[in-house]
Design a protein around this nucleic acid. Sequence first.
DNA 1: GCAAAAGTATGATTAAAATCATTTTTTATT
DNA 2: AATAAAAAATGATTTTAATCATACTTTTGC
Lengths: 247, 247
Amino acid sequence: MPTFVVEIIFFDRRLTSYMSALKNGCDLSLCFLCRNSLPGWQALAGANRKNLRFKKGAVIFDEGEDIKGMYFVYSGIVKVQRSWGNQKQLILRFAKPGDILGYRGLGDEKKYTISATAIEPVTVCYVDLNFFESMLLINHPLTYQLMQYYTNELQYAEKKMSNLVHLSVKARVAETLLTLNNQFGKSKEGNINVHLSRQDIAAFTGTTYETLFRTMQEYIRAKLIRVSGKKIFLLKEKRLAELAMMH
Amino acid sequence: MPTFVVEIIFFDRRLTSYMSALKNGCDLSLCFLCRNSLPGWQALAGANRKNLRFKKGAVIFDEGEDIKGMYFVYSGIVKVQRSWGNQKQLILRFAKPGDILGYRGLGDEKKYTISATAIEPVTVCYVDLNFFESMLLINHPLTYQLMQYYTNELQYAEKKMSNLVHLSVKARVAETLLTLNNQFGKSKEGNINVHLSRQDIAAFTGTTYETLFRTMQEYIRAKLIRVSGKKIFLLKEKRLAELAMMH
DNA sequence: GCAAAAGTATGATTAAAATCATTTTTTATT
DNA sequence: AATAAAAAATGATTTTAATCATACTTTTGC
């Protein structure tokens, strides 16, 4: 019953126990590329993809590097960020199984303007850029889906941008916590199902470590959240949602 | 020699003298939709598009409204913004001839999350969303181009986001001036070829009117720019570029 | 042509968040 | 297990930019 398995993966894409069983990587039904390839092209995609593994902390690609291919996440979590100087980072988004890394712009410069780093062990489908371009020209549903995918990313980016300008750090931290909860869900224990450093949470919020820390302390004191190491429990989501809408 | 005309338009899409001659609107070679339609589909696109005119200040669509169609700018300039409260705005980008307004997200909610306002008289090609969806499914080069277009927008948005977090207002104002110069070019007189209120420049920079004003005064005093009404002259672009890179 | 509304200009004050400095704890690495 | 390196935790200080207040000027609608 392979169809059944696929359904489960779609329902909870972070089914890591299942993932680890996939010793040979993507089964052609999970990553964006394979998922959106017509049966005829799927074999072609399968033949031209490479399965790559990255351990926690490994840089998948870095700002300034030449763009050579596309990465399709099928297990683990990746942070996508832009740096400034060499200390300050802004995490633009997190990529989970099913997400895409490393689109190229139209500019002449085929260099990454962002970097991608595994924040837990990650496996990806990788395809060469030339192959991918060819795929896009012949595999129309793929192009259509990709267009839709970017549309969504764009809306997400616009919202985030507006938040950065209009909301206080306090509101943004509340927003961050709810977003993480939304994106990663809760573990059995009830904490947000991802382990991030405070540094990374700060970088995702667009603030400094110190300010993030203080704001979180404030929320802990107010019993809106509970924290134990890297486990974060949201105790009053409703109240956090209110705070996320105030200046 | 219609091909020749098309070439000229591609070279300088704001050839407004040519535009005003187009009494009946888009000639099927300018707006994104028509430009990227194969000859066979172009007639179809032509038959299903409406030409709409908006005067200066007119709202093309507003946040919260139902998404009903797509807009393709072929003359004039549009500001695309997100509001907060009902006073604060962030201008995400400006749309010029050839640009697209109003993509929809995948969510169930088919509502605009941004608004578009003409900042000078604007004409657009408008097509119904259903028609556009059909177009995307049959007209593959259009889908491909659209995907590329969004890719670029995304890169632009990511850069802007990073700037908002990492750069001071002073740097961002310098950046804004260079961006405007880049996007709109210089008039014969030498000023940036667009008339924006200080309010809008502030909203594009992601700051308040007062702070923008003071920063511009500082640049005027330092003889980096010269201002006469809404005409802005960049006197030392190199220095501005340096400032745009400093914290 | 006049009134109302936008937009421009500028000083004074406040508040928010970054920066700096230092200690403690946890996590990797050899 | 030892040691180095990150990450976490906080207090104190400084800086930046938002907010508030008010006057003046230019557009624009009736």
